[in-house]
Amino acid sequence: MYRGLAGMFLLDDPEARASGLPKDYGVDDFPLIVQDKVINADGTLSEERLDEGRFFLGDTALVNGTRNPTLEVGTTRVRLRLLNASNARLFHIGFADGRTFHVVGGDVGLLPAPVPVTRVSLSPAERAEVVVAFSPGESVVLRGFGGVDEIDRGDFDLLTLTAARELAPSPALPDRLPSTPPIEVPADARVRRFALDGTDEINGLDFAMDRVDEVVPAGAREIWEVTASHYAHNFHIHEVAFRVLDIDGRQPPAWYQSHKDTVYLPAKSTARLAVEFGRFTDPTSPYMYHCHILRHEDKGMMGQFVIVEPGTESTVPRTLPTAAAHAHAASASASASDG
């Protein structure tokens, strides 16, 4: 993945396409895959520090594999689909002139309504869809702003956007968007707790290919409490959508309340997630949850769960058959690029 293997699926339905959001790929709708790298003086990619320390952080930002890219804007509004595909870095993304733009979607779908912001913070695997307005002839830099933590230090110019002298008019930004209802959990919802310890364990365990860590009934809605014990992490769950209820007891900002599958956890913080599981059942084909900081995941900060028929949870073996465990190895080894 560090060598550039990162891509994006763009999923739209007829309602979303009719919503009035910019939707013409390459005209007013652009995917932006952001990664940080270390580039040697001769222009080659350095891999010397990949296995050092708790996080790998590069000193150069690439967007869609390009250094210092530019984009000519031809419409009054543009939709940018942002994906942080870095190994570890957290980007606080906004514009150099501090302009307001609108978040319209997150990891797993659209928000109920556009949310005005000046920054969005994305850890590895997190996504956000934003709409920004332009005036004829102006030029502005999309920037990854730094913070005060180890994982987000330093500013990066990501992309220079230059508007043409004559812009085609875009539809007005809609007041409401065709979103999925928020995930609600019952009063007696099961609570599962996960402690991300150091850089390689969840609940005191390294990943084991043949171990089932959690058994979940199909269609369940649960609360997962996830704690970053010592260092920053970001928690990603396969198969599901979830809603971030709170982080350290505080409700997240409105733009962070869409359906998600990845949540950023500052060091020594706890997030509560309302998690909705699917209805396909298979007691021998597990899904994974893990930290999406790639060094942590590679060191074993992963677990896995199976989804089973409700009422059969206690009968499911916690050890996978040998053949199933071996078959699962291929998907587990590639999990870093699932975001």
Rank of each mutant, 00 (worst) to 15 (best):
V103M: 05
G94A: 05
A61M: 10
D51S: 14
D36F: 02
N84L: 12
L90G: 03
N68L: 08
A88C: 15
S46R: 02
F101C: 01
G105K: 14
R54I: 07
R77M: 08
E47M: 12
F56A: 07
T75S: 14
F95D: 02
L83T: 12
A61D: 05
L57E: 07
I39E: 07
G58C: 10
G58F: 04
F55N: 11
N40Q: 13
V73I: 15
R54W: 05
V103N: 03
N68W: 02
D51N: 12
L80W: 05
T70D: 04
D59N: 14
D107H: 07
R54N: 09
L71S: 03
L110I: 13
D36E: 12
F56G: 08
A61I: 04
L62P: 02
L111C: 09
N68H: 06
D107L: 09
D59Q: 07
G65W: 14
A61S: 10
G105Y: 13
T66E: 15
V38H: 05
G58I: 04
R79E: 14
G106C: 11
V103T: 08
T60R: 09
G94N: 06
V73W: 01
P69L: 02
A113F: 11
N84K: 06
N87L: 13
D42N: 14
S86H: 09
E72Q: 10
